[in-house]
């Protein structure tokens, strides 16, 4: 299978569909690991919870917002690299139904 280059910053905010055509959330963060000289992608994080984690994590920890239960309404999923099909980077698709995704821990 051939390799192609994808610009990661353009994947940001792209809506992902699952194998049954349902919305699974937007790509907000990409988790990778550094192995020697290489940086290997492990998972994509989808949904508002991932966005909040990236932009406003400290604010979400404020006791006032927690007391209002605000953080519980934001949901997010972790997509392992092999679960996401990026053959068309404009239209990312899951290789599985969204129910199989793991919820992001908070």
């Amino acid at each position: 299978m051939s390799t192609r280059n994808i610009n990661v910053e353009l994947l940001l905010d792209k809506e992902v569909k699952d194998s049954e055509g349902r919305n699974a959330g937007r790509i907000e963060e990409i988790r990778a690991r550094r192995e020697g000289e290489e940086i290997v992608v492990e998972a994509y994080h989808l949904g508002p919870a991932a966005l909040l984690e990236r932009l406003a994590a400290p604010v979400m920890r404020l006791s006032l917002l927690r007391a209002l239960g605000f953080h519980r309404h934001a949901h997010g999923w972790r997509v392992r690299w092999e679960q996401l099909d990026l053959s068309d980077p404009e239209k990312p698709v899951l290789r599985c139904p969204r129910d199989e995704l793991v919820k992001l821990a908070r």
């Binding site: 406003a56 994590a57 400290p58």
Partner: peptide, 14 residues
């Protein structure tokens, strides 16, 4: 303000 509450930037001096 968000930056000033972020330990990534201000550590324990938030």
């Amino acid at each position: 303000l968000i930056l000033m509450n972020d330990p990534h930037f201000v550590g324990k001096h938030g």
